[in-house]
Amino acid sequence: MPTYSTRRGAYSYGHAVGILLLDAKAPFIPGDVANATSYDFPVIYKTVEGLSTSVCLNGAPEFNEKLAEAAKELAREGVKGISSDCGFMLQFQEAVADAVDIPVCMSSLLQLPFIARSLDPSQPIGVITADSTNLDEGFLTRGGVKLPPNPLIIRGMQDEPEFKTAVLEEKGSLDSDLITAETVACAEKLLAEYPTMGAILLECSMLPPYAKAVQDAVGLPVYDFISAIDYLSAGMRPRAYTGGY
């Protein structure tokens, strides 16, 4: 076993990914980005005070500095990569990536060009987001996401009763069966309208618990926030292979 040095500023060790959290109060269930059991590796969380869901969704350039500082603190704690619990944090991707030396994936939306490259350009990609009134191609471009040639079909959950009250209005409880039904219905409608759809991306960090139900219902590849964080982490945790030949 090798010799290890103290990491200045660290009070605990072994964290794989540091995750910056919105200042939001809702139950984060298994599968949610902000639920530690969603990962096969240890994560550490840090709340960005004052950055509420609505502030983030409406755009908050004044938080750039605060996010960069929070990311640096996580880096000092020894995390190997940084992410967040809101796809709209895409707006902070550049500020955070420039502030630290470790890889940063602030948003599930960074996957879009990668997913698009695996499909034929004619195949539409469905994006299910928390709030489609704030997510458009301009937002993606400003966040540094190169728009793929594929048609992007963006649908929001903001008018679904349980999602709206539990997630956006933080009523203090969350009925996951109801949100399953709401998310699956949204995906089924997308597929009905665009039968040649090639994949679905779930933008919202609270939707990965329903990714399997969506996939079972529509039979398409489904990507979500967890698939992005798993990938980010894979680069810092290469495997040792012990198999046969």
Partner: peptide, 28 residues
């Protein structure tokens, strides 16, 4: 960070085989 052929294939495996999160409910 090092990414290779396997990190990519694993990524697409994930997108094509979503998993159920079967952590007990009281664990949230």
């Amino acid at each position: 960070p090092v990414y290779d052929f396997i990190t990519m294939i694993d990524y697409f495996q994930r997108g094509t085989h979503q998993k159920a999160y079967d952590t007990p409910r009281h664990y949230y």
